[in-house]
């Protein structure tokens, strides 16, 4: 039999049960309890953040390389030691804000390396309890690097979630993964053929199972699937924000990824650029045809 906790709570509040019956009451998540649980989760997160703050304070205070090395040798803050505590809280308060916050935090921290095994529950919880909620929308970006596990996660969110932002981001990151797969498949079949040195780093981080699959896959087919997924993103999800508040939307990002795949590969004729220099004079990249050009996207920051 399914219990509706809220109506049960309301009923319980109206008519307090006889003392003898109290032990029969199921654990009921009242609003107070939910708020308290979220506070508890935030308190654990704050403990880690304080450690991080302390570390960066010491780092800023260090004046020599030697001091910095010593600081790192003493150990950097390790988020994974809080994973178990958060798991206990999340499992005690399933399907609440507190659980979602705990699980997303664990996933984001595991993404920085370390604690991958201890974080598996968090992904499973997000996919099981929160697949149709706004909370799931933070997962695609955290699972965007190319490996067997992440492909499964992105496909599951893309095809099963009812949440539009999550669908959009899963499709966008999956599209990019497929483009990378296409390039990786070409490179694995014929080392050195793409001439893209950064790709080598991406290939190195792919798991062996996927690497084996890619070796026998048709690169063009992978690239085409990636392109059609990104085209779909441009049509269906153009205005969805990738990083809320930073104004970066799926439409232009997908368009950029497609432009790069189609026009900015080694051996392609460089597209022209027209713009204005620091003196306010309009010029073109093609003004420099006949010379070797280093095109440098840069800044002082």
């Amino acid at each position: 039999m399914m219990f509706d906790p809220l109506s049960f709570a309301a009923l319980a509040a109206m008519a307090p049960p006889p003392a003898a019956m109290v032990w029969m009451l199921p654990a009921v998540a009242t609003q107070d309890e939910a708020a308290k649980a979220l506070q508890d989760v935030e308190a654990v997160v704050a403990k880690y953040q304080a450690e991080e703050e302390e570390f960066s304070k010491k780092y800023r205070a260090a004046t020599t390389d030697e001091e910095r090395e010593k600081l790192f040798a003493g150990g950097t803050p390790n988020p994974s030691k809080y994973f178990a505590e958060l798991q206990t809280l999340a499992e005690k308060h399933r399907k609440t804000e507190a659980a979602a916050r705990a699980a997303s935090w664990v996933i984001s921290m595991a993404g920085r390396g370390g604690g991958a095994d201890e974080s598996a529950w968090a992904l499973e919880m997000m996919l099981t309890d929160f697949i149709d909620t706004d909370h799931i929308a933070s997962v695609p970006q955290m699972c965007s690097s190319l490996n067997t596990r992440n492909i499964g996660i992105l496909e599951r969110i893309r095809t099963e979630s009812d949440n539009e932002r999550a669908q959009a981001l899963a499709a966008y990151f999956r599209g990019n993964q497929l483009l990378t797969s296409g390039k990786a498949a070409r490179e694995l079949a014929e080392p050195g053929s793409t001439g893209d040195q950064y790709l080598q780093y991406e290939i190195d981080s792919i798991d062996d199972e996927l690497k084996e699959t890619l070796k026998t896959s048709d690169p063009d087919k992978l690239t085409k699937s990636g392109e059609s997924l990104l085209e779909e993103c441009m049509k269906k999800y153009a205005d969805v924000e990738i990083y809320p508040g930073r104004g970066m939307k799926v439409g232009p990002k997908a368009e950029g990824a497609l432009f790069e795949a189609r026009n900015l590969q080694i051996g392609d004729m460089s597209p022209d650029i027209e713009g204005v220099d620091a003196e306010g004079i309009t010029f073109k990249l093609s003004d420099y045809r006949g010379q070797v050009v280093v095109l440098d996207f840069w800044g002082f920051w």
Partner: peptide
């Protein structure tokens, strides 16, 4: 950033992402 493309005299992209 930085991202670098190296383009030859004919306008062909010859290197990118030198890492």
């Amino acid at each position: 950033w930085p991202t670098i493309y190296i383009i030859d005299a004919k306008g062909v992209i010859r290197y990118k992402n030198l890492r």
